[in-house]
Design a protein around this nucleic acid. Sequence first.
DNA 1: GGATGATATATGGTATTACCATATATGTCG
DNA 2: CGACATATATGGTAATACCATATATCATCC
Lengths: 113, 113
Amino acid sequence: MSEALSKEMKKGSLELLILALVEERERHGYEMAKLIEQRSRGAITIHAASLYPTLYRLEARGVIEGRWVERAGQRRRRYYRLTTEGRRSLAAQRDTWHAFVQGLTRVARIRPA
Amino acid sequence: MSEALSKEMKKGSLELLILALVEERERHGYEMAKLIEQRSRGAITIHAASLYPTLYRLEARGVIEGRWVERAGQRRRRYYRLTTEGRRSLAAQRDTWHAFVQGLTRVARIRPA
DNA sequence: GGATGATATATGGTATTACCATATATGTCG
DNA sequence: CGACATATATGGTAATACCATATATCATCC
């Protein structure tokens, strides 16, 4: 019976979600959005208008790197992979989130995940 | 070795922190800021310029209610208490955060709190 | 064959909110 | 007295998730 996730709540988390997904293998944007929804069991949904600008930003920062892939019978896709710099950033962001979640859990007495 | 919490990351969490603190007892703003820092063991710090506008917003929404308390030898303080509506909102926000953190933990493989 | 929906990316404009900078005012301690 | 903690106040800024809308390909159904 919980409310839908507010958009404010998601701020700062989308980068981490993307980095974690491309850590496993090369992925394209649409695929990431679907994966986030599936793996979070519907708890987190990311809109295309948030996703693509974030991908451009991450690529501009050099943490991910994209390449166009065209296949017959498919719309073109841009696949992104994690760079070396991205791997460092992902590790740092995981630590930061862990500390944040721990702190929030203690202060606000949330049921621990 | 984790980076400082980005301000974006905190978005949407301050309300929950405040509601959880005034759930225990009546509290004033400055006290809340100190408690958040202490209880999160320094992981979360809230600046006055974020805190007070948020308190006004919460009071305007009717989830907390403030009253001025003046005591000799002390600067005036505004103490806030949780309203009935606030109690409902807090429960909902706790559920929402729990779902969000669980989802994020699964997708991004964060160490669970 | 036309409508519908899933796939896939793109972007201009908006809203929210945490913060910076600065301000006011009181009490304590050296 | 000067510095610092306490305590609140607010105008302006930055960051980012979203809304609305657009383009384009493919599969499915009637």
